[in-house]
């Protein structure tokens, strides 16, 4: 359902993505893992329209996405939960959730979705009138996921859902994501820095480092973690040319 073909992104003179290709099929859980600064967030932001690739195409359901049009992309059934939990801190939990429904035309379905999503997140129901900024980190992560679900996405992109959360909370976040996937028939593309938690849930895994995809395979074939480790840290079997310095001019 999603095809990323050879996208290149630069920030000023820094080349963040140097030709990334990746695909996600309907119903899959695909995980993009890589060290800090590898280009994971940039990849997801490019798909969601938040950064504009200067080369390459992104195709959703057979149609090319207009680059740099996040409002448009959101309307096509693709939702991004960005890194770092962008809760609207001064809006209440209810208002945070409602913002996500304003673009929708199916008013009747919105009311039903709102109830259903809140039932997935009982903790949010309890805090429905609190400002988003007062929630704990775990609750905020729940809120941004619930909020993204209310845009009624078919493809959900989640950027490092476990960032800065205690392991127990991370487990809860993943439980919710998997439950939501089942309930909503979602396709998931998830970024993580480490593979150990995601490997058992993912169908396929991509490893990105320094703006290049270094490895991509079925999760089952990577279960021992050795190949991932090599790709992740850049040991061994790769061409040396792939490790050029990041600062070279675009």
């Amino acid at each position: 359902m999603l095809e990323i073909n050879d996208i290149h992104v630069t920030y000023g003179r820094l080349r963040a993505l140097k030709g990334v290709s990746l695909s996600v099929r309907q119903g899959e859980i695909v995980c993009l893992i890589g060290p800090n600064g590898a280009g994971k967030s940039t990849t997801l932001a490019a798909v969601a329209g938040g950064v504009v690739p200067h080369r390459g195409t992104i195709v959703l359901d057979g149609k090319p996405l207009a680059a740099g049009r996040p409002e448009q992309t959101a309307r096509l059934g693709l939702s991004l939960v960005p890194e770092g939990r962008h809760v609207f801190g001064t809006l209440t939990v209810a208002e945070n959730l409602r913002v996500a429904t304003y673009m929708r035309r199916d008013r009747a379905a919105v009311a039903a979705d709102y109830e259903r999503v809140l039932n997935l997140f009982p903790r949010l129901k309890e805090r429905i009138g609190s400002p988003g900024g007062r929630l704990s980190g775990g609750e905020q992560q729940m809120l941004v996921i619930a909020r993204a679900l209310l845009t009624r996405p078919r493809l959900l992109l989640v950027d490092e859902p476990s960032l800065g959360l205690a392991p127990k909370i991370v487990d809860q976040v993943y439980e919710i994501l998997l439950a939501a996937r089942k309930a909503e028939g979602l396709t998931l593309l998830i970024n993580e820095q480490s593979s150990h938690r995601i490997l058992k849930h993912a169908d396929r895994v991509y490893v990105i480092r320094n703006g290049h995809i270094r490895l991509h395979d079925d999760a089952a074939k990577l279960a021992d973690g050795e190949a991932i480790k090599r790709a992740y840290f850049g040991f061994g079997d790769e061409p040396a040319a792939a490790d050029e310095p990041e600062e070279e001019a675009a």
């Binding site: 969601a48 329209g49 938040g50 996040p70 409002e71 959101a74 309307r75 939702s79 991004l80 960005p82 962008h86 609207f88 913002v99 996500a100 304003y102 673009m103 929708r104 909020r147 993204a148 845009t151």
Partner: peptide
């Protein structure tokens, strides 16, 4: 940007 990601024009 986050508002845009949620479809706010």
């Amino acid at each position: 940007r986050m508002a845009q990601y949620l479809g706010v024009r």
